[in-house]
Nucleic acid binder design. Structure first.
Length: 424
RNA sequence: GGAGAAAUACUCAAGUGGUGAAGAGGCUCCCCUGCUAAGGGAGUAGGGCGCGAAAGUGUCGCGAGGGUUCAAAUCCCUCUUUCUCCGCCA
């Protein structure tokens, strides 16, 4: 969430940058400031009374010992106590409302982010590789997968429902190969590998800002406070929740493979075929905790990691800066990596790399001290996919298919495939 | 899942309603001594939040959240976690 002091000191700027996301939040910001005014007034009043209570309290035992009549003082204390209680109750309500509004207020996009309406306005910063020209009609990955009997969507639907599938034989093996390859690249780049819980509680989800605003995207376990994670970002970022890190530890780099579960509530009917949009998929994530002054530079370095993977796999891709209208609500800046997908005849998102500034750190309460005895400051958090598995698998099937229906395994994956060079 | 016990600072730990939450270890600094020691002294409760230009000051902090009371580490309720035993179990 945003710092209330930052909002107060930069009100106009905050309003403008939030409006650039496509929705005017001026009223919400004004309400936040009004509630904060009310909050401060209540604190001042209640604490003045408490100070008086404490002062009188200290004298009561002496007076009692001396055998003096303290019934007048007692009456005064009783009245004070009730006033304090009333003001505290009111304060609680105000803070609850203020906190909720702060939790649902999006992050302020940084100056580098272009203003735009949707993905059309994203800015391509670089691309690598050329979309392959086929001398025959290339097949979509769902057809390749079915023909080679390595993706079984009908049985996925039978067992679970739409947007589920089985991977089979070389398909399952390829998925596993991708996970291992990604993790090996990432750990080689200095990211510490974690295996995490795949369920998380509501406090954790509030920390990384899936809650309270995006609850409909999550699968919730009935009769419990557990949610299925939609990304490893959730457990990994919250790994350091409520901690004060030492300045020398930063930056901290982590990587984790997890399955990801997404309700895809707003996507009914879109991308129902194949592996592009599914309820459950494998992903390897990278997460960074950095000092505030380093986070923009660390974002550039972070994007380079999935780029390295795509280059090693030989998949053509491009990097775009998401415009204000297309980026996620919680980040200050977001790069998307888009891989060339012949069946769509366009680039399709395969990784999203973002700087969250102190937005998550403030919610999850993750701080650091520059040195012993220094004041604790919020860290900056960043994360990116490195990389999503099913979309990469789909891209491999489509980009490396042969006319006879077989698929070449990218060279770097051959060792992970037990020497298999061609899927047939 | 059942029964019992526990949670106070970096660690250990005292504290059953009343003025500043003991004490010890550790750590930091000083003194004495002089050579891996010993002794003496001082400091060592973090983190929010409020007021203040600042120095500072107020408030809240004894696992968490409520309650009783003029007043709660202390009494009551709910919850969490840890430990021990039992049960179940890959």
């Amino acid at each position: 969430m945003l710092d209330i002091r930052y909002i107060r000191e930069n009100t106009q700027y905050v309003k403008e940058r939030l409006a650039a996301r496509g929705k005017n939040l001026d009223e919400q910001i004004d309400k936040i400031i009004a509630l904060d005014d009310e909050r401060k007034a209540l604190i001042l009043s209640a604490e003045t009374k408490k100070a008086e209570q404490n002062k009188i309290n200290k004298s009561i035992p002496q007076l009692k010992k001396a055998g003096e009549d303290i019934s007048a003082i007692m009456a005064q204390m009783k009245a004070l106590s009730e006033q304090v209680k009333n003001e505290q109750a009111k304060l609680g309500e105000v803070e609850k409302e203020l906190n909720y509004l702060l939790l649902i207020t999006p992050n302020v996009p940084c100056d580098k982010v272009p203003v735009g309406k949707d993905a059309e306005d994203n800015v391509v910063v670089r691309s690598w590789g050329e979309p392959k020209q086929f001398e025959y009609e290339p097949k979509a990955h769902w057809d390749i997968g079915a023909d080679l009997d390595i993706i079984d969507q009908p049985r996925g639907v039978k067992v679970a429902g739409t947007r589920f599938n089985f991977l089979k034989g070389a398909g399952a093996k390829l998925e596993r190969a991708l996970i291992s390859f990604y993790l090996d690249v990432n750990t080689g780049e200095g990211f510490k590998e974690l295996m995490t819980p795949y369920l998380a509680n509501s406090k954790t989800l509030t920390g990384t800002a899936q809650l309270p605003k995006f609850a409909e995207d999550m699968f919730k376990i009935e009769n419990s406070d557990y949610y299925l994670i939609s990304t490893a970002e959730i457990p990994v970022t919250n790994y350091h929740a409520d901690e004060i890190l030492e300045g020398e530890q930063l930056p901290l780099y982590y990587t984790a493979y997890t399955p990801c579960f997404r309700a895809e509530a707003g996507a009914a009917g879109r991308d129902t075929r194949g592996l592009i949009r599914v309820h459950q998929f494998d992903k390897v994530e990278i997460v960074k905790f950095t000092k505030p002054e380093d986070s923009m530079e660390e974002l550039e370095k972070l994007v380079a990691v999935p780029e390295k993977i795509l280059q090693a796999l030989g998949l053509p891709y491009r990097v775009v800066i998401c415009c204000t209208g297309d980026m996620g609500g919680n980040q200050v800046m977001q790069y998307d990596l888009e891989v060339w997908m012949p069946s769509y005849n366009k680039y399709v998102e395969i990784s999203s790399c973002s700087n969250y500034w102190d937005y998550q750190a403030r919610r999850a309460n993750i701080k650091f001290k520059r040195e012993k005895g220094a004041k604790a400051e919020f860290v900056h958090t960043l994360n990116g996919s490195s990389l999503a598995c099913p979309r990469a698998l789909a891209a491999i099937l489509e980009n490396f298919q042969n006319e006879d229906g077989t698929v070449n395994v990218p060279e770097v994956l051959v060792p992970y495939m037990g020497g298999m060079k061609v899927i047939k």
